[in-house]
């Protein structure tokens, strides 16, 4: 019985894999492909691995470890990819209506200009983002 439940969970997880692959193929630009390619694979891999762990209980610990690892690292790599794609957003043809990162950059640049105009004040300490 546990084997059938585990195999069914694996089937649902591989359906999420298939959804994410179709999304990767059919979404219009890189940001939408990122949406399909990272979120759906996170859920799909967790279901797939828990299903395998239910089929073979001696794999369950390692499978849960791998699932937790994927749940921790996939948002990080998605964030790094989104920051990288933001630099190419004009060339990618992406429509980003609320672009908080660009607004943040403009605010930082305006603050730097204001400080330079103000003269030899003490340098402002930026909160939050690290500016190289």
């Amino acid at each position: 019985m546990a084997a059938i439940i585990g195999a069914s969970l694996s089937l649902v997880g591989s359906l999420f894999f298939l959804l994410s692959a179709i999304g990767l193929l059919r979404m219009p630009d890189a940001f939408n492909r990122m949406q399909a390619g990272t979120k759906a694979t996170t859920l799909g891999s967790m279901l797939f691995l828990v299903g395998i762990g239910l089929m073979r209980p001696d794999f369950l610990g390692r499978a849960l470890l791998l699932a937790g690892f994927i749940a921790l690292t996939n948002p990080v790599s998605s964030n790094a990819l989104a920051r990288a794609a933001h630099g190419y957003r004009k060339r990618l043809g992406a429509k980003l209506a609320p672009d908080a990162l660009a607004e943040d950059d403009e605010a930082l640049a305006a603050a730097a200009v204001r400080d330079a105009a103000a003269g030899s004040q003490a340098p402002r300490v930026q909160e939050g983002r690290h500016v190289d």
């Binding site: 990767l24 990122m34 390619g37 990272t38 996939n74």
Partner: peptide, 10 residues
Amino acid sequence: TVALDAMTIM
């Protein structure tokens, strides 16, 4: 790179 990320997980 996005496709490579998804393929790594799969």
